[in-house]
């Protein structure tokens, strides 16, 4: 079957649609002296602590539009970094958008002067998955977006000098924490920020996302509690001016490769190791985020983390794609030219045009051989099928092959994305060319 291209996965069509109830949360049993486990849930799923705070979840059109925004912001940042690497620290050029963050390197403040370069283009962290962490002493709980595509963790803070968006949890109040301290401007930690400022001797941070969402405030230290572990002196942003597409979350947990990320700050404790699992949409179970050397499941197949392409992002070497067990004919240079990022916050996998085209063609042929006809596409998704009246569908397998031979046989819950039962689409999209 492997060479004839007919490997099939039997898909429960209902498994592509959101579940409606959540099983009781499982007690964390994995935490130990050098490890900690947090629960991961879909922000709009039945197990989300934010679920009842929403009027209704975003539409598929909104989700996919936000996803495209995120992808474009990642592309901008990678391009800017690549330019810097090539030109040896050439300055980032300001983008055309206004800068609502308005932070001036070297001095204050929270004003609205447009100076922060938009083209710094961090990936927007609206993401889909959230975790609940503790902050301060005594610790209060905050549900935040978890994001491997950015570094600086932040929460909205009292007194919200300029603006806070609506969130479900109470705002973090530094005055109620006995261990809170602002980072001073002369502290070397202030230099770790990509965008920093100074007011009254206090270090200011700013993060502006690709779609204009932003957070600005004091860079601070306090005790971070993950599972039952306390990380003392954790550096984070205490946001005093925040707005954008952050849902009802209290902020964001940055898990990138940069100096300010939790990954790096807690490297002394967990060795820079972490792992997570996103549950399928239909299941009533939760996923997890583990820290520590024991985080790696025994059956993990590894591929090199490519660190020469700049900070923050986790680059890996995608080398090939198999559909129905058959390797597609795609030159490896198609993948290696731009590289591939593993991102927790992008919903739909993006491929170079040549690779996407080969995948789409092979999948379409496999579906046709199984009696399925294509229907109209939806947003960025072009290859869609009508599963009305079908409870189980046999669809071609899709596997991603990485440098070193690691292979990700995409789970049945991840091959297709259901807009509705009448429009179920291949969950891949093109980035438009092979050179981006």
């Amino acid at each position: 079957a492997g060479s004839s291209g007919d490997e099939t996965v039997l898909l429960n069509v209902q498994s592509l649609l959101p579940g409606r109830s959540c099983a009781a949360p499982q007690e964390n049993k994995r935490s130990g002296a050098t490890s900690a486990r947090m629960q991961v849930v879909h922000q709009h799923g039945p197990c989300s602590p934010l679920a009842d705070a929403h009027g209704k979840p975003p539409s598929h059109a909104e989700i996919l539009a936000a996803d495209q925004n995120r992808v474009e912001s990642i592309q901008r940042r990678v391009a800017a970094t690549a330019g810097k690497l090539k030109k040896r620290a050439a300055p980032v050029q300001p983008g055309p958008k206004k800068n609502p963050a308005g932070i001036h390197p070297g001095h204050s403040s929270f004003s609205s002067a447009p100076l922060l370069p938009v083209s710094s283009g961090r990936a927007l962290g609206t993401g889909n998955y959230v975790v609940t962490l503790g902050l301060g002493t005594p610790a209060s709980k905050y549900t935040v977006v978890f994001d491997t595509g950015s570094d600086t963790t932040w929460v909205q803070c009292r007194p919200c000098v300029v603006k806070c968006y609506k969130q479900k949890d109470p705002l973090f109040d530094p005055a109620r924490s006995s261990t809170y301290a602002n980072v001073s401007c002369s502290d070397s930690a202030c230099d770790d920020l990509d965008e920093s400022g100074c007011t009254g001797g206090h270090c200011l941070y700013a993060v502006q996302y690709g779609d204009g969402s932003y957070t600005v405030g004091f860079f601070a230290r306090d005790t971070l509690t993950i599972a039952h572990d306390a990380i003392k002196g954790f550096q984070f942003g205490c946001g005093e001016k925040n707005d954008g597409l952050f849902g009802m979350t209290a902020g964001l947990l940055g898990l990138g490769r940069g100096k300010t990320s939790l990954t790096v700050q807690a490297q002394y404790r967990y060795g820079g190791a972490f792992a997570y699992c996103f549950p399928a949409l239909s299941t009533d179970t939760t996923g997890y985020l583990d820290f520590g050397p024991g985080a790696s499941p025994a059956n993990a197949r590894v591929t090199p983390m490519l660190t020469d392409n700049g900070p923050t992002f986790y680059f890996v070497g995608l080398t090939g794609i198999r559909v129905g067990g058959k390797q597609l004919s795609i030159p490896e240079t198609v993948f290696s030219t731009g590289g591939t990022i593993v991102d927790s916050g992008t919903v739909i996998t993006r491929l170079p045009e040549t690779a996407y085209s080969a995948l789409s063609s092979a999948f379409t042929a496999g579906m046709a051989a199984r009696g399925f006809k294509k229907v109209a596409g939806y947003s960025i998704l072009e290859t869609c099928y009508d599963f009305t009246g079908i409870s189980e569908a046999a669809v071609p397998t899709v596997s991603l092959v990485f440098k070193g031979g690691a292979c990700l046989d995409v789970d049945e819950s991840g091959i297709l994305y259901a807009i509705s039962q009448a429009q179920v689409c291949l969950a891949f999209a093109s980035i438009g060319d092979d050179e981006s």
Binding site: Q75, N128, F278, L318, I431
Partner: peptide, 30 residues
């Protein structure tokens, strides 16, 4: 730049190790 999105990561344990400079994928993790 290609991006491996979270839909394709579902049910896999995605493992990062800054010390060893590896990323890993473990099926059936949740």
């Amino acid at each position: 730049t290609g991006i491996l999105g979270n839909t394709q990561q579902k049910t896999y344990g995605v493992v990062y190790d800054l010390g060893k400079k590896t990323v890993g994928f473990a099926p059936g993790a949740c």
